[in-house]
Every structure is written in C-alpha cells, then in structure tokens.
Nucleic acid binder design. Structure first.
Lengths: 337, 337
DNA sequence: ACCGATGATGTTAGCGATAACACCTGTCAG
DNA sequence: CTGACAGGTGTTATCGCTAACATCATCGGT
C-alpha cells in the first residue's frame, strides 16, 4: 500500500525529486539571487510535477509573520461598509494577502477588543478597523501600538492612521447645490450623531449654509434607516417653509421621499432632496435621487497601502488619507416653487 | 538590556513560571482530563500573568489542521450575498473559526479556481462557495473531493453538499398571493436566467399559475438591477392587461414601481407588485413592498453546521438543507381594478 | 504485602519551513 | 602561482506546538 497519498508533498519531497537540498528549494521559492538558472528550472519543474504547495503555517512559525490581514467590521448590511469591505478584500487578495473578517454585533469597546484578540491569536500582519462611531474609536486604545493598524471612517481627531471619505466636502457640495438652485435654506436629516460620518456631514452642511448666509435650521436627528427618514420626512412635510432637504444617506432620503409623496408634496417641484452614498438603486427612486458618491474602491486601496506601509516599514510617512466624493446630479432637485 | 520584550511568550515560558513541563501547559490548553485541578489553576494563572497566546501557526503545523474557513464570493454588494456573508462570518466567529474571504470579480471557472487555490495555500479546514450561477457551479468540479466543501445558492441538481433558500416555495407563495387577490394571471420579471435563484423563482411562479389554471405569460428576463426592472416595467406598464407583477428581487420591483408610477398606473390600485429579498428599505418604497423574506441567518447557520460536520466526520448525514422563506405582506398588492 | 491499573506528569521526536553558517568551486588581482 | 572573494549549494539549528511514549506515584483487589 502506498501510504504517501495521505500526505501533501513537502519541501524535502521536491528537493529529492530535483536532486538538490530543501534549502535550495526554499531559495527558489523566495527568489534568492544565488541559484543557478538551470537548478532553478529543475526545482520549478519538480514543484509543478508534485503539485507542491508551501505550508504557510511552517513559514509563519519560523518567520513570525503571516500574510493575513484582520478586519473588524460591524455585522450590518449598510451599503457603505459592505462596499468598502468587498473592495478591500479584492484589493488585498490581489496583493497576495488573505483577509480574515471578524464581525461584531455591536460597536462597543468590549466586542471590538474581543474581535481584535481573535485576530491577534492568528498573528495577523495588521488590522483594519471600521470604526465609524465613538464607542468603536474608544476601543482602539486597547490595541497595542506595535500592531499595524488602520482605521476607516474613524475619528478624524485621533492620531491613528486613518482613511476616510471627505464627508464635509460632500455635504458642503450637496448643500451648496441646493442653495444655488434657489432655496433660501436647506434642512438636514442626520445619521446617528455619534457616527463620525454623520457628524462630518452635519459640519459640511452647516458650513455651506453659513458661507452663503443662509439661516441654519435645527438638525433633524435620525439613524441610518429608511424608517427614520420616513419619520423625519413626515415632520418636514408638514412644514411649508421646508423646500430643500439634505439627507445624510440615501436610505434616509428614500424615507423622506415617501413621506413627501404621502403628504402630496411633489419632489422636486415642491421639495428638493439630496442624499449621500449613491446606492445602486438611487437612480430608480421616485424621482431619481441626486446624491453624493463616495469612491469606496479608492478608500479600500488607500487603506491597504497605508497598512502595508506600516507592515513593511513600521510606520507611514503620510498616515492620513482623505477621499473626495463627487456629487451625482439626477432629478430630485429643482428651484423652489 | 532585557531583550525578552521582543518575543511573545511561548508555552515554555508559561511552563517555567508555573513550574511544570510545557506538555502540561498544552494539556491544560486543550482540556485534557488528566491534569490535577491545582496544576490546572497554576497554569491558568501563569498564562494570564504572561498574557500568553497560543501560536496557531505552530499548532497548525503539527496537527495539519487550521481553524480557518475559506469563503469564495463574488465582489458584489447585492443584498442577498452580503447578508449571507455577514451572517456566516458572525456564526463562524462564534464557533471559534476565522473566515478568510476570497473575492472574485466574475463568477467564471478560472477566477473561482484561483480563489480556491489561494485558500488551499492557507490550508483552510473547509471552503464555502457562493455559487449562484452555472459557471460558478462548473468551477466546483475542480475542487478536490477531500476538501470539505459547501455550496450556497448553488445548483440544486448537483450532488455537492448544498444550502439554499427554497426559491420555488417563495415564488409559489408570492404568485398565489397575487392570484388569490383576484388577478387572473401574474407576470414575472426574472433575474438572470443562468442564476439558480432566478430559475427557482421562475419555476415556483409557473407552478403556482399552472395549479390555479391561470394563463402563463412569457417571462420578462432581466438582471438583478433596478435599471433592468425599470426597463421591464416600462414595457409592462404599456400593457393594460398586466395587473399583477412578481419581480425576482426587490430592486427589480423598485424599477417596476417607478415605471408604473411614471406611466400613471397606480400601485396597488391598478397594478399589484411583489418582490423577493425583503431589503431593509422595501418597507419604504412607494408603496411599501409586499415581498418574500429569506432567512439569511438560517442559511448561514446551516452552512456552517454542514461544513463543520464534514470537517469533523468526513461527510454529512444530511448534505442538503433548504430554508423556507416567508411572505411579508405590505401595501403593494390589491384586487384588480 | 504484592501487582497491575490508573492518574499525573515529564521527555523526546517530529511537523515544514527559514536562518545562519559551512563548504566547495571557480575567477581574478597581485 | 597563489590567496582572497564571490557564487552556488548543503548542513544544522530552530520556531512553538502536539503526539507518543516513558516514568513515577497511588490505589484497590486478592
């Protein structure tokens, strides 16, 4: 009976077949310069013939390093985080890194710390934390400084390496667009106030109003859901002076649209609405939604590059990256009636 | 100079501190029975004091097994796959497994094979492939039989272990609901025909019509996007005999709703519409969408349990699991005008 | 009082890679 | 012609764990 079928081929098997030592095989695998071309080819052939596959665990054991990146993300299907994660996994895969995702039910300090611990158990090369609110940002304090870390959508006021969409600029553009359409002011339905994204958008909105000398109405606070947008919309729909609304994301905007519709206020004839995110279906809302589009793929790329810089060099020369979003014009904005 | 600060504590360090051999530490860690309670406590204390963290690479090297599950998924932000993935990551994390996600741009044989190879390099304990169309299902043939594998949303006609939502039952319920509201027949806007989900829904829809002796109109083929739903909807809106539409997902339904709206056909007064997926914002479409809700968390749980059975026992007694969806009644269905 | 079974522990040998060093061979400057 | 040096290769130690076996008490049954 041939018992060898049970075991994957190891480096020594390749070495035997190629007539060299296992160390030479290792050298070929790691592209060391001092290997004769002919030997290299012989080893490559043996690798192929055996279907040899280096054992990452063995390599990790001796080098103390892995090709694994840990990501901590909330267990949600919000469009932004989901897009980001997907783009990041793709980018990391192309760079030869595997991505281990640790999902967390709630973004509190304890859950995040536990997820980070699980990743550290795996000896990840670095960690990405999607830390969009203050409780998540607090949890970053527990992460030891020597572990490469990049925060996404995190607290702009913290000194950790950070990649974010320029929320303020996006909100500023959206608000300015409404003002320039002729509205005397713009109301804002905000995301949860402890989210940095939401706070940044509130900030950009307010700045635009102030620069244009428009009155600043009170912020209508909500969470990210269409349900909350609907509720906020019901209130705004009753107020005849409201002619322009900037919602902090597209789902909120959807809720606002429905509330306006039910109240008989036509969009954009009576009320103009702008969202944020550009979810794929935003173009098919009634009416098609003017919104702000963040480039999640760019965020993912910057995040990866920032992390890999830290992994290879210990730190990054430019540890904060901001991605500028773009305003997408559709049919939900018009001049006031 | 204390050089030890550079190295993580290893098992021997714990052993030394606790005054036992490293093997005893190993036994404590793996809950072996033959350890005196007092020794166990002493070892636990030493582990805690040093902040010891077992090295998974070393363990994987000697056991030949990892606590890693590989997932192959398409790089998309479709609601269904994203929800599934998120739920799976959470379930796996709770079971002590890490999840490595390999994203694939297109679901062709070559890309999937490459993603699977990357996972095999990491010596994953098992693989989950989200293989919703035939090209993805074809790629499964390349995966060696000894690697535990579970397919999600895959080909119901293939003999691989499989977890799916009962698409046929969901579509049957949706269609029957429309017929029972009084419509003489129901039109169907289908997802891409090479997707098993879409095919299953077409099947259930047709079966419902046939059982109720309703005429079977031609299938309106689309992809999963709101844009395609809109296009299909524009056509259906022009046909006065169309009074009920079952769309293969909620985004298609959204496109249909907008097309109907633009054409002045009121939903549900003139036309009734049902979707599939129950995306969070479906409740805030105009009007709130009646739709079919699959339980993605249940799919994730079954997938994990099926995979772990294969990992530990080599195979599973019951290698196919089907999750029944539920119909969610809202405001987009009424009697024909 | 003796013996084998049992429990609690220690000792040794790998797992499959890389690192460090040793060892040959040529080549070329002096 | 010789020695230093570099290129190509092999040998050995090591990473941190678990498996397998060895060892030594303790204990109950005859």
């Amino acid at each position: 009976m041939d018992q060898k079928i049970t075991r994957d081929p190891a480096m020594t098997d390749v070495a035997r077949l190629a007539g060299v030592s296992h160390q030479t095989v290792s050298r070929v695998l790691n592209d060391h310069p001092n290997v004769r071309e002919q030997t290299r080819l012989r080893v490559r052939a043996a690798i192929k013939e055996l279907g040899y596959r280096p054992n990452r665990a063995a390599r990790a054991l001796v080098t103390g390093k892995t090709q694994l990146i840990g990501v901590v993300a909330q267990n949600s299907t919000l469009y932004g985080p989901a897009s980001l994660l997907s783009a990041f996994e793709e980018a990391a895969g192309e760079a030869g890194f595997a991505v281990s995702v640790g999902r967390v039910k709630v973004l509190d300090r304890e859950s995040i710390a536990a997820a980070v611990e699980r990743h550290r158990d795996q000896r990840v090369a670095g960690i990405v934390v999607i830390a969009p609110n203050s409780s998540a940002a607090d949890a970053l304090a527990d992460i030891p400084a020597e572990l490469p870390l990049v925060t996404v959508d995190g607290d702009p006021d913290r000194p950790t390496p950070l990649v974010t969409v320029d929320q303020g600029a996006g909100a500023y553009d959206a608000t300015t667009h409404l003002l320039e359409a002729g509205h005397s002011t713009v109301w804002h339905v905000s995301g949860p106030t402890d989210w940095f994204d939401a706070a940044g958008r509130v900030h950009g909105w307010r700045r635009a109003l102030e620069i244009h000398n428009a009155e600043v109405p009170p912020v209508v606070a909500a969470d990210w859901s269409a349900a909350a947008g609907y509720k906020a919309g019901q209130m705004l729909a009753r107020m005849p002076e409201v002619t322009a609304v900037f919602a902090s994301n597209d789902h909120l905007a959807l809720g606002v649209l429905r509330a306006m519709y039910e109240r008989g206020r036509r969009v954009p004839h009576d009320v103009s609405v702008v969202g944020f995110d550009d979810v794929p279906e935003a173009e098919f809302f009634i009416p098609p939604l003017t919104t702000v589009r963040p480039d999640f793929a760019a965020v993912a790329r910057e995040t990866l590059s920032l992390l890999l810089e830290q992994v290879s060099e210990g730190e990054s020369a430019q540890p904060r990256r901001t991605i500028e979003p773009t305003l997408v014009l559709r049919k939900s904005v018009g001049p006031p009636a």
